[in-house]
Structure formats: structure tokens, C-alpha cells
Amino acid sequence: MRQTRLVLLALALLGVSAGPGPVRADAGPATTPALGVSIDDFNYLDTSGEVTDQAAVHEKRLEEFMQGLRADVAAEPRYRLVAPGEARIRIVGGVQKMSTLIGWVKVALVDTVANRLVFERRYSFRGDSDQAWDRARIFVSRDVLAALAEAQPPAKTDAAAQIALAVFEFELDDTSAAAQASGPTPADATDLANVTKGVRELLAQSGRYHLIDPGRADGDAIKHQALRDCGGCDAAIAQKLGADQSLVGVVRRVSRTEYTVAFQLRDARSGAVVSRGDSGLRMGADYSWTRGAVRLVGDRLLDNGAHK
């Protein structure tokens, strides 16, 4: 279901910025696995109003367009074509015939892990012939390959060069009116668990960090979900776990449709703050917490290159 929503979003949000650039890791001995890419069959729409029915001709041209695009991507050893459910990057799009001589191609690349658009563009091409469609495919392939190169996950660095990081469970600071009456709910715990999972997956896949399991840690601040207010005690706890750094995150619910996300990264030895981020007020229901947290950590921590 999540990937279905992403595909619909990618096709709908034409003209919307694709968001921040790709996550990059620190330099070091590395190997880069082939990026799993799926290419959905593009939709076709004819709004030209022409009397002659050319459906069979256009169906053949679209089939050749898709074959060419897939061949262009598969020719690069950095990428491997996979089923949509296995893809890190999913490519979707459509072709629309506007008039006798004008056509459009719409393309979007969706990062299914980071849950964001990494590329989207609309192309206009002139002519309705085999040659015109092929020229359009060449332009699309060129830009798609460039976007895939940017979206390539960073190479996994040597374990010795990775930062050992303890990512503690995200905490909820509920200041909404409903909180006074009902307090935390089982749904809140599920949503927070999803936030923590999403952020941990993002950091693990960056190649920069080796995640330390904080599950065996103990202490009142952890038991009472109060690491955000313990004066930096998370750093000492992380050091005992063998981590170099600690990350504490909080979701602050203002109302059922307004929330903020914040995190703080500390050096485990000195307790000094290495990086922090605050999303500011966001609109969205509880299910959007994960998306907000992953975007914030990606923007402020990974893209800004905070390290040891």
C-alpha cells in the first residue's frame, strides 16, 4: 500500500520540488552494490481529438519506448532491474498526445526507502513518428540515468571507519488538548516505534553508521521515556553500550493534525552536542510522523555531514 501511494504521489505532484539531494557517506574503502530499479509500464493518454484511431500504432511505440528505456538502464552495471516490491528506486510515468504534432512525457523517480520523490520532469516533444518517440526516449533515458546516479545509495564503508551510534526510541511530548483527557494510547506507541524504525533504517543504509542496539540499556530516563529531558544522560548510556554517539528524538504533538519532530546527536565520551535538528510546525496526522522524522534526519544529519 505504501508503494501504491508513492506512485500516485509521483504522478500527481508534477511541478513540485523533488526535495533535498541524495545522502552521501564519508570517503573510505567501499563497495557499492547494484541499485535495484523497477520501471513501471507508462500510461498513455490521447487528448488530441484526432478522428483517426491510432491506438494500435501508439501502443507499439509505447512498448518500444519502454523496452528502450529499460535497456538503457540495464546497460549500466550500477543498476539492476527488479520487481517493484524489491526496488530501491521505482520509475513511473506516462505519455500524453496533446495534438497532431505535440506530445508530453511525464517521468518520476521514487525512493521507496526514504519515501520521497528524487526526480520528476515533464518533457514536450514534437512529432508523432517512430523517430520522434525514439528521440523523446533518448532524452528521458539520459536524465533518468543522471538521476539514478544521484540517488545511488552511498557505498558501504569499512566497518572500522563507521561511527558506532545508539539510536534511542523516539519519545512523545503530547501537548494537545486530548492528551489531558486520555494520555498516550497504544496507537501512539505503534507510531513512535515506526518513527524509530524509519530513522534507524535510514542511518544504517547511509553506510556512515554502525548501529548499536540500545535494548539492553537501563535507567529511569529510559523507563519513563524522558531522555529528552535528562541533561544529556543519553551520552553516558551510549558510551556504556560501546557507542561513539547517541541520538535522542522527540515527536511533539500540538494537535491531531499538527506536530514537530526534533533530534539531538551527542558525542558519547564528552557529551557535547554534535548535531541537532527541529522540523518546525508540520501539518499532518499521526501516520506522517515517520515521514517527517526521516526527512529531518536526512536533511540535517546526513546531508549536512555531521560526524565524529
Results as ranks from 00 to 15, higher is better:
Q3G: 08
R5L: 12
L6R: 07
V7R: 09
V7C: 09
L8Q: 11
L9S: 15
L11D: 12
G19A: 10
R24V: 04
D26S: 08
G36N: 13
D46S: 12
S48W: 04
R61Q: 14
E64R: 13
Q67N: 12
Q67A: 03
R70V: 03
A71M: 13
D72E: 08
V73S: 10
V73L: 13
A74Y: 03
A74L: 07
A75M: 06
A75I: 01
A75C: 06
P84S: 05
P84V: 04
R88A: 05
R88F: 01
G93I: 08
G93A: 11
G94H: 01
Q96F: 13
G103I: 02
A108W: 12
Y123D: 14
R126Q: 12
D130V: 01
Q131P: 04
A132P: 02
D134S: 12
R135D: 13
R137S: 07
F139D: 15
R142L: 10
D143M: 04
L145D: 04
A149D: 05
A151Q: 00
P154G: 01
K156R: 06
D158G: 00
D158N: 01
A161H: 01
Q162L: 00
I163S: 05
I163F: 00
F168S: 01
F168I: 00
E169D: 08
L172N: 01
D173G: 01
A179G: 02
Q180L: 02
A181L: 05
T185I: 09
T185E: 04
P186T: 00
L192F: 03
A193L: 12
A193K: 07
N194A: 11
V195G: 06
T196G: 06
V199I: 14
V199S: 10
E201G: 10
A204T: 15
Q205N: 11
Q205L: 14
G207C: 12
L211W: 05
A221Q: 14
H224N: 10
A226T: 14
L227G: 06
D234N: 09
D234T: 14
A236W: 10
I237R: 11
G242N: 15
Q245I: 09
Q245G: 06
V248D: 13
G249I: 09
V250S: 08
V250N: 15
V251N: 11
V251P: 07
V254I: 13
T257G: 08
Y259T: 08
Y259D: 10
A262F: 03
F263M: 10
F263W: 13
L265I: 11
L265A: 03
D267M: 04
D267E: 02
D267T: 09
D267Q: 04
R269V: 15
R269G: 04
A272V: 04
A272C: 04
V273Q: 14
G277I: 07
R282E: 09
A285M: 07
D286L: 05
S288K: 12
R291I: 14
V297T: 11
V297W: 10
R300P: 02
L301V: 07
K308Q: 14
